[in-house]
Every structure is written in structure tokens, then in C-alpha cells.
Write a protein that binds this DNA or RNA. Structure first.
Lengths: 230, 230
DNA sequence: TTGCATTTCAAACACTTGTATGAAACTATC
DNA sequence: GATAGTTTCATACAAGTGTTTGAAATGCAA
């Protein structure tokens, strides 16, 4: 087992390069050069390039999902088993938005990597994303408890739109800044979260003002993953 | 000039293959095999692979943008120079959604190609998308006329969210179907357009019901483009 | 130390990719 | 029908890719 030095060096270098230059532009040779390890080390430790990418993405996804569920759980507990729809939406979009737009993380490799993953959508990542359904179902369940009697389809649409606004903001933040000539402040993450939550709640309820809900978190270091982790 | 047979065969074959299998999976050799032309024909007629992709995307984009502006113009004229915000949003998201989700176009190559372009985001396409700002500004201008006195940033956010919901629905339609186990009907395009318009308008105005606005169109055939067309 | 498993390394492999070349085939004009 | 311009074609090129190999180095237990 040794010290895992090589393994972690590869992960760190790969995440940094992918974050900076995108998946299409970075080769294994770039990665091993950055990590100061041998080319064969990638295949030795990860099996293949795709599995390396998958591990990077799974690690970061798990962290986000964990944050989401923690925030959801906290909201449900403090609400006696039933969270407000605002709090649920906040738990859904908050972690992702904070992770990718947050000021403290502006230079964060993890954040920029996740943005890349969202923009470029390379095969191994797409495969993983397709397994995220189970995770989202937990939010649908919470929404059902929060808005009983509502048609399920409406809940799905609300969830879908919330993710739409959240992901599109991350993905197109540069373009929105350019289009608005800086008038849309992409640095005030809390304001963005509130905005997305407000619109999502309106989409679900047909138009009441939204409240607020707190939350915070940190990016975890890499650990070893078992396959099929997500 | 001859008959352009080879040129159009390449365009058609390329669009079909890209639509079916994505940009990452399709090589020039695949394309020329499908088109029954020689490998060198691509570089002869288009200069490079990227320029071929760009031409495909520009053609389809121009068509959509034209539809959007037509619908916007019609709405403004029938409103005496000032269209309702519902009509503006409808003009913005209607053509794209109809183009990519429409039932008559379900099997349409053009539609599937545009979905791919939205999902995979390959460099030549990204370059083109970055020039779309001018086009969107026309919608911002219309929105400003429709909602005078409103902060510009609010208008940009509203436009941004409208595009977010529209694009995300196209991009993730399979996932939404799967997540909702078919309860969200992705075949009823008009209902989807109305839904997106309604939420967009709520995002902009803070919650009034939305009206409707008509529109329709067809996919144009390919013509020769001058460079820098979009 | 000896022996065994893990890890590193340089080198090569096998393959695919987009692009370039130069001759051949074709087309239209005189 | 000869000529010039355009288009097609088979083929080769050059470069880059992820992956494999087998030996060398290293770490660890007895």
C-alpha cells in the first residue's frame, strides 16, 4: 500500500489540468509530467484514463451529494420531519452553486474541475451522471412531504427547473457576465442561490416569496474509492 | 461549381452521424463512408473537420435565430411596437424547444444534431456560441420596452433563466423522463413551452399568470454559407 | 540477508486521427 | 477536340493517443 504518493499526485495533477484546460486538451502525458510520475503509473493505479476521470468526478460528486443530503436532513429535522419547500430547494442547489461559484473557492481546482465536467461532458462522466437518479429521488420524496397533494409531475418539473437554473448558471457564468456587461454579479453566491430558490419555489407553488436557509461546507480530500461508489 | 453533390452529401452524412453517435465517436472516415465520397473531399470542400462542424452548426443556428426574431417581430408589431413579456419569452424559447422536442421532428436529424451540439460542446461550436451575444441583446431590448423601469440586471437574469430551462430540458430530456418514470410528458412541446414561459415570466415579474402566443416554422435545407455567417 | 510482492520506469506497441499530395477523371469553353 | 479549371481518388504522411511490456528498483516480512 506504501504511501499512495504517486496515486494522489496523479489525481491532483489531473484535476488541476482538466480544470484549467478541459478534457479534450489534456493527455496522459501532460498529467504524468505535471505529477512527476511515470506514464505507466496511470494505468497501473487506475486501470485506464477513463477510470481516472471517473474517480475524480465521483469523488467530487459524492462530496456535493453528501452536502445536499446533510442540508436536507437538517432542514427536515428542524421542521419536525417536514422541511419547507424553500429549504429543500436550497439544499438542492446551494451546495453545487456554492461549490462552483463560491468566492473562497474562486481559484479552487475542485470547483473549476466540476465546471469543466459540466461543460464538456465526456463519456465516463456521463455514465456516472446517469446513475444520479436515486439521489434526486430523495429530494422528490422530501418535496412530496412538503407539498402534499401536489401532482408528482409538477414536483419533477420543479426539481428539473431548479437544476436547470443552477447548472446553467455555472456553465454559462462567463457568458452571462459578458452579456450583462457585468451587471449580473456572479460573485455574490448567496444572492444567486436565493434567486434560484425563489424562482424554483414560484415554479412549484405559483408565486409566493421565498425564505432563507443556512448551510456551509468544505471540499474533502481524496480517499480511495470502491468501484461503483456513486 | 458543378452540382454540389459531394458537398451536400458530406453535410447530410455528417449531421446524421453526429446526431446519432456524437462528435467524439465520429471520424472523417465514418463520414465519407456514409456519404460515399472520398476522404480528401472533406478537406477539399470545407478546409478542415472543424469548419465542417462549424458550418453544420451555423446553418441550424441561423435558422433558429431567424425563427426567434420573426416571432419577436410579429409580437411587437401586433402590440404596437411593444410586445408582452409572455410573447417575448415565447419567441425566445419556442423555436428552440419546438425544434429539438417537436413531435414531427422527433426523428429529425437536425433536431438531434442540435441536441448533440448542446450536450457535447465541441470547440468549433463553442466558438460560434460565444458570438451569440448580439442576438440575445435584441431580446433584452424588447424586454426593456415591455417592462420599462425594471433594473437591467433583472432582465438579464430572466433571460438567463429562460434559456436555462429551455436548454436543460432539451439536454436532459432523457433523464427527466427516466427520473419521473414517464410522468413528465416530453412529447407535448406546447405544454413545455408554456411551462417555461410561465416560470420565466414569474421570474421577471414576481408572479402573474402567463398568456399565450402562437408561432411555427420548418427546418431549412442547407445552402452555402459565407464565413463568419453568424 | 533472503525472498516475495509491490511499485516504478523507459521503451515500444498498436492504432487512430486529421491532413497533404499528386496523379487521374471529369467538365466546360473555345 | 484540345485546353484549362475543377473535382475526385488512392495513398501516404506525420503526429499523437492510450495502453502494454518486462525489467529494474523498492519496500517489507521472516
Amino acid at each position: 500500500m506504501a504511501s499512495d504518493h504517486t496515486r494522489s499526485a496523479i489525481l491532483a495533477a489531473a484535476e488541476r489540468l482538466y480544470a484549467d484546460r478541459g478534457f479534450g486538451d489534456v493527455t496522459l502525458r501532460d498529467i504524468v509530467a505535471e505529477a512527476n510520475v511515470n506514464l505507466a503509473a496511470v494505468n497501473y493505479h487506475f486501470g485506464s484514463k477513463d477510470e481516472l476521470i471517473a474517480e475524480l468526478f465521483v469523488t467530487r460528486s459524492l462530496a456535493t451529494n453528501r452536502e445536499r443530503l446533510n442540508e436536507l436532513k437538517a432542514a427536515e429535522e428542524s421542521g419536525g420531519g417536514r422541511a419547507s419547500i424553500e429549504a429543500i430547494m436550497h439544499a438542492l442547489v446551494g451546495p453545487t452553486l456554492r461549490g462552483c461559484l463560491g468566492p473562497d473557492r474562486e481559484g479552487s481546482t475542485a470547483a473549476r474541475f466540476m465546471i469543466r465536467a459540466s461543460i464538456e461532458s465526456v463519456p465516463p462522466i456521463r455514465r456516472i451522471k446517469n446513475r444520479e437518479v436515486d439521489h434526486l429521488r430523495k429530494f422528490v420524496a422530501a418535496m412530496r412531504r412538503s407539498l402534499p397533494g401536489r401532482d408528482d409531475a409538477e414536483l419533477y418539473w420543479g426539481l428539473h427547473f431548479a437544476l436547470a437554473m443552477s447548472h446553467h448558471t455555472i456553465r454559462e457564468k462567463e457568458r452571462l457576465t459578458k452579456l450583462s456587461e457585468g451587471q449580473c454579479d456572479l460573485n455574490d453566491v448567496n444572492a444567486i442561490v436565493d434567486r434560484v430558490v425563489t424562482v424554483s419555489v414560484m415554479a412549484l407553488t405559483g408565486g409566493e416569496p421565498a425564505k432563507k436557509a443556512p448551510a456551509r461546507s468544505m471540499a474533502p480530500p481524496y480517499g480511495r474509492l470502491t468501484r461503483q461508489d456513486l
